[in-house]
Simulated assay, not measured.
Amino acid sequence: MNSGAAASESPQAAWAGGSADVHLIYPDPQFSERSQAAGALRRLANAFVRYRTDEATLAEIAAWAHETAARLESASDPVPRPADYFARRYSDPRPPDGAEVMAFSDRAFSGPANPTAMDVDMRRQGEGVRASVTFGAAFESAPGRAHGGAVCAVTDDVLGYLMVCLGIAAYTARLEIDYRGGVPIDEPVVFEAHEAHREGRKCHVALTVRPADAAADAPPLIEASGLFVIVTAEQLASDS
């Protein structure tokens, strides 16, 4: 994060190191600050799992966490998710090809302002999505491997962003995952997803996961397929 970015830049551009290639559907006026704080908390979570310390330090961490949580809880009312999240798929332009795509800065699993997320760089790639993901120690299951449930969660999130890049509103109806190899922790892996075919309101999708340094035709660690059911603009309008 570039804390020295010019004051005239948007929070999104400042966070992206001066680049304006971030497509953030719901702007966050504290994007950079919240992302930096969440990143520090993610580092703390991974360090807490990976390392051991004395009882006094553990007590200090617990006291600080409870005090800080209480300050946050008393500082404002809870912030609800916007009700027009799906409707905007049919009114907003699609993300530009190559742009980093975010719905909410604190989106589950992938939002940089969410301290429980993974480290994710999600981008539109043509008519598909490409995400570079690093799972930290907080998501380790078998030695050196990310928990399959965490991998599944990111898979669903990447496919959700595929819907954003396609410009459609859709719910996950079915998701099938073949775990062909272990997904490593502390090393970037690449999720790539695309639409396989469409039948009316049924959007069939496919996804693969490979190490970031693997060849494009290397055997994938993960293969997934899924079915998303499209909610049309007319249906959304009739429900409002």
Results as ranks from 00 to 15, higher is better:
Met1Asn: 12
Ser3Asp: 14
Ser3Ile: 12
Ala7Gln: 14
Ala7Thr: 11
Pro11Cys: 05
Gln12Asn: 10
Ala13Glu: 11
Ala14Met: 13
Trp15Gln: 07
Ala16Tyr: 10
Gly17Glu: 09
Gly18Cys: 10
Ala20Glu: 12
Ala20Thr: 12
Val22Lys: 05
His23Met: 04
Tyr26Asp: 04
Pro27Trp: 07
Asp28Gln: 04
Gln30Glu: 11
Phe31Asp: 05
Ser32Ile: 08
Ser32Met: 10
Glu33Pro: 05
Arg34Thr: 05
Ser35Cys: 13
Gln36Glu: 13
Ala38Pro: 03
Gly39Thr: 07
Leu41His: 02
Leu41Thr: 00
Arg42Asn: 00
Arg43Val: 05
Leu44Val: 12
Leu44Met: 11
Asn46Leu: 03
Ala47Met: 11
Ala47Lys: 08
Phe48Cys: 05
Thr53Ile: 12
Thr53His: 14
Ala56Val: 15
Thr57Ile: 15
Glu60Gln: 14
Ile61Gly: 11
Ala62Arg: 15
Ala63Ser: 15
His66Trp: 08
Thr68Leu: 07
Ala69Asp: 13
Leu72Glu: 12
Ser74Met: 13
Asp77Met: 14
Pro78Ile: 09
Val79Gly: 12
Pro80Glu: 04
Arg81Thr: 11
Ala83Val: 07
Ala87Trp: 03
Arg88Ser: 06
Arg89Val: 02
Tyr90Trp: 06
Arg94Tyr: 12
Pro95Trp: 06
Gly98Val: 05
Ala99Arg: 05
Glu100Val: 05
Met102Ala: 04
Ala103Ile: 08
Ala103Ser: 04
Phe104Gln: 04
Arg107His: 09
Gly111Tyr: 09
Thr116Ile: 07
Asp121Trp: 06
Asp121Lys: 03
Asp121Glu: 06
Gln125Arg: 15
Glu127Ala: 14
Gly128Phe: 13
Gly128Arg: 10
Gly128Glu: 08
Arg130Val: 13
Val133Gln: 00
Gly136Tyr: 04
Ala137Gly: 07
Ala138Gly: 02
Phe139Trp: 05
Phe139Lys: 00
Ser141Asn: 01
Ser141Lys: 01
Ala142Ser: 00
Gly144Ser: 01
Gly144Arg: 00
Gly144Pro: 02
His147Lys: 01
Ala150Glu: 01
Cys152His: 08
Cys152Ala: 12
Val154Arg: 05
Val154Phe: 14
Asp157Lys: 09
Asp157His: 09
Leu159Phe: 11
Gly167Thr: 10
Gly167Glu: 09
Gly167Val: 11
Ala169Thr: 02
Ala170Pro: 01
Tyr171Asn: 06
Ala173Val: 08
Ala173Ile: 03
Ala173Cys: 09
Leu175Ser: 07
Glu176Cys: 04
Tyr179Gln: 00
Tyr179Ile: 01
Arg180Ile: 02
Arg180Pro: 07
Gly182Thr: 02
Pro184Asn: 01
Ile185Leu: 00
Asp186Asn: 14
Glu187Val: 00
Pro188Ser: 05
Pro188Trp: 00
Val190Trp: 03
Phe191His: 14
His197Tyr: 15
His197Phe: 15
Glu199Ser: 14
Lys202Gly: 06
His204Ala: 06
His204Arg: 07
Val205Ala: 06
Ala206Arg: 15
Arg210Pro: 02
Ala212Gly: 03
Ala218His: 05
Pro219Ser: 02
Leu221Trp: 05
Ile222Ala: 00
Ile222Cys: 01
Glu223Leu: 12
Glu223Met: 10
Ser225Lys: 14
Gly226Asp: 08
Val229Phe: 07
Val229Ala: 08
Val229Ser: 10
Ile230Asp: 02
Ile230Thr: 06
Glu234Cys: 01
Glu234Met: 02
Glu234Ser: 06
Glu234Val: 02
Gln235Lys: 04
